[in-house]
């Protein structure tokens, strides 16, 4: 069976083929989405959730830290983006930076409290902090607009090298989100294969051994939390632009549960691509199944239960198995270094 950390270096094809497929799918999406009866806004949503999911899986899959309150950082990113537009300046880069930094700061504070904990205590604390942020967004009326949230958040134009592109259309905003998604994929791929990322995975496997190898474990857990909160903040900033608003529901426990479900169903515990697959599966269920029946969430929930019980490796694990049956995947890892020798 595959696992997240077993094959450290794959063949170039294995590394770059999925990335190329993804880039091709994204760059052509505005053409084929309407062609298969879907709509442009869906592309934006999917890209945003993929960024959120990839960042979340650094924590959930790679570090093995079970955060069940991660919606909070998506919401903080969304609010920070909106507040920046409304109180500082109408600026895309400023707003996104505000979203990333605000979520990172919240993550840094929460991370400091929880990174010495493990297991159920860790999970419970993440939920508790998530609820604190959600509650604050409801009650801090003067800042957040209470239950209504921040309305009328503009989509600032993209300024790049003195040029300006309007992002008012969903297609334009989609391309921006797709760009950030591809950047997230590349960054995350580097990150999980960097020394920092490998130590993180070692800590997941055996915390005691990692300490005896000389690593200050809680700092790595803290850093993973902060980084993953920052990606959530980026996703939140884009979400505020997409919805042109930010409201408490964005950071609700429901959102936190959704991201866990997506990542698990997709196979985030065994594959880098798990979160991406999970997001696709969810939105296919919502928009295709949802078109057929009102009760789609029930079916999705049952599929989630079946997955957890029968195939905890998720969709990525099933694809790997199918690929292997076809003779495509070798049992032994293909080592890039061997090519040099």
């Amino acid at each position: 069976m595959i696992s997240l950390s077993d094959i450290p270096v794959r063949s170039r094809f294995q590394v770059y083929a999925p990335m190329a497929v993804m880039a091709a799918a994204l760059s052509t999406a505005p053409w084929w989405l309407p062609a298969i009866g879907l709509y442009q806004y869906l592309g934006i949503e999917i890209a945003i959730w993929m960024i959120f999911a990839l960042g979340f899986n650094l924590l959930f899959g790679y570090a093995g830290l079970h955060s069940f309150g991660h919606g909070a950082y998506l919401g903080i990113g969304a609010y920070a983006f909106g507040l920046f537009q409304q109180n500082v300046a109408v600026s895309l880069w400023g707003g996104l930076a505000a979203g990333i930094l605000a979520a990172g700061l919240a993550g840094a504070i929460v991370g400091a409290f929880i990174s010495h904990r493990r297991g159920i205590y860790y999970a419970l604390l993440t939920i508790a902090f998530g609820q604190v942020f959600w509650f604050t967004s409801m009650k801090l009326y003067g800042v957040t607009g209470g239950e209504d949230g921040l309305l009328g958040i503009p989509r600032p134009p993209l300024t790049l090298f003195g040029l300006e592109y309007a992002l008012r259309s969903n297609v334009a905003l989609f391309y921006l989100a797709a760009f950030f998604l591809l950047a997230t994929v590349l960054l995350m791929w580097r990150l999980v294969n960097s020394p920092f990322g490998r130590v993180l995975q070692a800590i997941r496997q055996n915390e005691t051994r990692a300490r005896f190898a000389g690593y200050e474990v809680w700092r790595f857990k803290w850093a993973a939390f902060v980084i993953s909160a920052m990606f959530a903040g980026l996703a939140g900033g884009l979400f505020a632009m997409a919805q042109q608003s930010a409201y408490p529901d964005v950071m609700s426990l429901h959102q936190s549960g959704l991201i866990v479900m997506m990542v698990l169903v997709g196979g985030g515990l065994v594959s880098f691509w798990g979160p991406v697959l999970g997001v696709i599966l969810y939105f296919v269920a919502r928009d295709v199944l949802g078109g057929l029946t009102e009760t789609w969430l029930l079916w999705y929930g049952m599929m989630f239960m079946a997955m957890v019980m029968l195939r905890p490796e998720g969709l990525a694990g099933m694809i790997h198995l199918g690929w292997k049956r076809l003779g495509g995947a070798s049992e032994k890892p293909v080592i890039l270094l061997a090519e040099k020798a």
Binding site: S194, P195, F196, G197, R198, A213, G214, L336
Partner: peptide, 16 residues
């Protein structure tokens, strides 16, 4: 020890 000193390398390679 030389891996430990690189522990805060976020983008560097390992197996290459």
């Amino acid at each position: 020890p030389e891996f430990r000193t690189r522990r805060l390398s976020f983008l560097g390679g390992v197996f290459d």
